[in-house]
Amino acid sequence: MSVSSLRIAVRAYFLSWSLAIAILLIPASAFAAPVPTGGPIAVNMDQSKLIRLPERAATIVIGNPLVADITLQAGGIIIVTGKSYGATNFVAMDRNGEVLLDRIILVESAADPVVTVYRGIERESYSCMPICQPRITLGDSERFFKSTLDQAGSLSGAAAGAAASKPQ
């Protein structure tokens, strides 16, 4: 084996080990979307988006928690969840109270196919993927909204009760 081929083999060996170590050391926060430097952050209603903040972020203040919710996770990751249509802002601060970021959050309608049915002045919304089912949507008539919400709550409660009574 010549000196140059030995040198190439040693370089390849160290390069492969360096690459393997680098892959193992990448934190999960590397996969979150970075916070845009300008403009609003768009999120769909009833959906979440992962955003990476500066590492020093320790406190998050949300302008209107009825529009969006934010949860701060380890490693500077936040989970932004759209709760109702509209716009609000959030401010990220470090432990000393220094403002690191101040951004607008726009909560928009989800992209799933929705059919809206009007019965006089009463409005009902249905999510059609592929079969149309009642959907809890802001702006629906009070009777339909409450009925759909009650059914969803009953189903959720029954599922939670079944899971709690399941033997371990």
Rank of each mutant, 00 (worst) to 15 (best):
S48R: 12
G76H: 11
P130G: 03
L149G: 00
F145S: 03
V115N: 07
A74T: 12
N64E: 14
V117M: 09
A111E: 03
E122K: 08
T137H: 00
L50Y: 12
D112V: 11
K49D: 07
A57S: 15
G75M: 09
V61D: 13
Y126L: 02
I51D: 06
G86T: 06
G120A: 08
V115H: 08
R143Q: 12
R119E: 15
I121R: 13
N89A: 07
S154E: 11
T137A: 14
R95S: 14
V43Q: 05
E55M: 12
V91C: 01
G153D: 09
I62G: 04
N89G: 12
L72A: 08
F144M: 02
Q47S: 15
S84W: 04
R103N: 12
I62Y: 10
I104W: 09
E98S: 13
R95I: 09
A111I: 02
M93C: 04
L72K: 11
T148N: 01
T59W: 03
S141P: 04
Q47V: 05
P130K: 02
L53V: 10
S109I: 07
Q151H: 08
G82V: 06
F90Y: 13
T137F: 00
A57H: 06
Q133L: 09
G139M: 08
R123L: 11
Q133H: 01
R52C: 05
R143V: 12
V61S: 14
E98R: 15
D150F: 13
G76Y: 12
V67H: 08
L66N: 13
T59K: 10
